[in-house]
Simulated scan of single mutants.
Amino acid sequence: MGDQYQVITAPIVGVRVTSSLSSFMAEKRFDRSLTIGNLKGRLELITGASAGTMNLEVFDDNDKFVCSLTDDAALLGSHNIEENYRIHVTDDSTKMGEFDDLSNVEKFELSEDDYSKRNDSVRSFLMRNKMGKYNEEEQQKLQEQKEALEKAEEDKAKSIAVGNRCEVKVQGEPTRRGEVMYVGKVHFKPGIWVGIKYDEPLGKNDGSIGGRRYFDAPMKYGGFTRPAFCEVGDFPELDYEDDEM
């Protein structure tokens, strides 16, 4: 089932690089197999920021924040970075203009219309090769996959009702049982979630997250999971003492 929705990404990704140390933007292509530590070393040569103290934030092509690159051992390809995304470099140990005096330089600004007319930009490369969001067929397939997954989630959620006994199985976590207390959308994540009061203190909260309460449970007895991981039925409480023996 999972292979049906597998998306193969290119080994090289083109991004825009900006920095708190300069007003200039660079367009670069990086191998997704680079570690974040190695990426910082390359960005040090581009921006002048120190690899040891720089912070990296990723923004999409609409300038919406995507993620921070904090784990130096992680691979660039393990993060959700697509073509034409922007990596912004900050370094509090270095001041703006330390590596370039812009006081006597006319600021270069490129309008959206002028940028779209350039033949050497990342955007023009994507358009010529019908990659990323400029590949209508690929985007249509991704949209259909997304809609299919959302439909499957909605259908599964309809079989789960408040008051049901349930069993939750998530890979890498112990099997948990409890009572369904909430089914629906939440403010902290997209999609439909199931709120559960567990039989044992194997949860993460008391039924509230970020100051918003969805149900009542003792601390550590409450939790939320996706409908796909939740099965309802006649599940008696688990005897964890016997399991340990």
Rank of each mutant, 00 (worst) to 15 (best):
M181E: 14
Q171R: 08
G184Y: 03
K185V: 13
G172S: 04
R165D: 00
T175E: 06
E154W: 11
N164G: 04
T175F: 05
I160L: 03
N164R: 07
K151Q: 07
P174G: 00
V162G: 10
M181T: 04
A161C: 03
V168D: 01
P174A: 05
G178T: 02
V162L: 07
E173W: 11
S159A: 14
A161H: 14
G178L: 02
K158F: 08
N164I: 10
A157E: 02
R177E: 05
V180I: 13
A161T: 12
R165N: 05
V162Y: 11
V183Y: 04
A152T: 02
E153S: 13
K158E: 12
A152L: 02
R176Y: 11
T175M: 05
D155F: 06
G163Y: 03
A161G: 07
E154N: 12
M181D: 01
R176K: 13
G163W: 07
E153N: 00
T175G: 07
I160F: 10
V183D: 01
A152D: 04
T175N: 01
K169D: 00
S159L: 14
K158D: 13
E167G: 03
R177Q: 05
V180D: 12
Y182T: 05
K156H: 08
V183P: 08
E179F: 09
V183N: 07
A157N: 04
K169L: 05
K151M: 00
R176L: 07
